[in-house]
Design a protein around this nucleic acid. Structure first.
Lengths: 193, 193
DNA sequence: CGCGGGTTTGATGATGCTCAAGCCCGGTGG
DNA sequence: CCACCGGGCTTGAGCATCATCAAACCCGCG
């Protein structure tokens, strides 16, 4: 279980984890299973754990006044799930995170994570890299949200994240792109001629 | 000049900078002035410097096929400007960053920054905090982009960032919010009755 | 066969965009 | 002191895009 996390960390850092470091990590990260449709984080709760997905698929979404869900993130293996705003500020989350498929996670509390960062250099390095990738991805998504048509957003998404199109139904993709499922359906029809 | 950066760092970290650390920082951060309408980063160039704004105001935007500008960020004092995608991947930027007011910056190359992070603990800590705040802000903006009406987006923005409304003209705010200036004008009329 | 989850299609309407014109206001120069 | 100009904001009319609502369809499965 933890092995996938180790290779993930090694893959993203120049260094290799020592066995003491692996032990530290092993004791900080607690395995957790979340069954399909069950919550990892529920709106109104304060996020206590960050999670690393070993196997499965999850989604993060907000629900507006009309009860409509808006997908803010889709996650599969090797993604980190969390509402960082809630975890950092200790405020109730406005998001839900639930499992779309049965999911195996490794979870860690914020204090434990901060501790690992100070003790394990490659952990600090990995976190910085994750933040960087995250910043880049957010930037891209933001830019396409404000400057592209729905059609281009879909094309871009389909090119960059084909795995997601396999694993999630179209109406979730539509919501992720900020359009309704009907609109996405029509967009795809356009693209095929 | 560098003093503003020191107090910025001290403000965000538990530690205080030693005088050796201040010296290191002083030699890595190079002052630069950018006059109104001049570029800090231009589309097609690879970003070589990150900048800390000591005084002034800048904007980051992309230009679409029709020549329309789309504001992805607005910056004032104490903000960091950069296209992290370009800086990290060493790819040509798709963004422009220019000065909206005459601006004083402290600039630093990526290698120098990485060096400071390894040598100065409070620098590493500060960067992590910045990334965290950045992640939170992006998340919020993304969520409101996909789930809110233009009207709510404006209200939220006006409440959270009143300084920006002072310093930038309305048509830039409109672009930042992903609507045209005409639409924003009409939205404001609605809000006043 | 019928049901559940997901997708498609059509008709209608709201929202926001485009284009064009006018307005407002603070310079600047005659 | 006035005329004009530029930058920014507003207003209006028409149009494109996308949302909404409702119905039909598709398909795997019990």
């Amino acid at each position: 279980m933890h092995q996938k996390l180790f290779s993930y960390i090694n893959q993203y850092t120049s260094l290799t984890l020592s066995s003491e470091e692996e032990t530290l990590i092993r004791s900080a990260f607690i395995p957790k299973k979340v069954k399909k449709k069950q919550f990892f984080l529920q709106e109104g709760d304060v996020s206590k754990y960050a999670g690393f997905i070993v196997k499965g698929a999850m989604r993060q979404y907000s629900v507006d006044d009309k009860g409509v869900e808006h997908i803010v993130h889709l996650y599969i293996e090797n993604y980190w799930v969390n509402d960082r705003e809630s975890a950092t500020m200790l405020t109730p989350s406005v998001y839900n995170i639930d499992a779309w498929e049965d999911t195996d996670l490794l979870t860690i509390t914020r204090p434990d994570m901060l501790d690992l960062i100070t003790k394990i250099p490659s952990m600090a390095q990995m976190i910085r890299l994750m933040d960087e990738r995250n910043a880049i991805a957010s930037q891209r998504r933001l830019n396409s949200a404000i400057s592209s048509t729905a059609e281009k957003r879909y094309e871009e998404f389909a090119n960059n994240y084909p795995q997601f199109i396999q694993r999630f139904p179209q109406y979730l993709i539509a919501s992720y792109l900020g359009v309704t499922q009907e609109t996405l359906s029509r967009i795809k029809r356009q693209l095929f001629k």
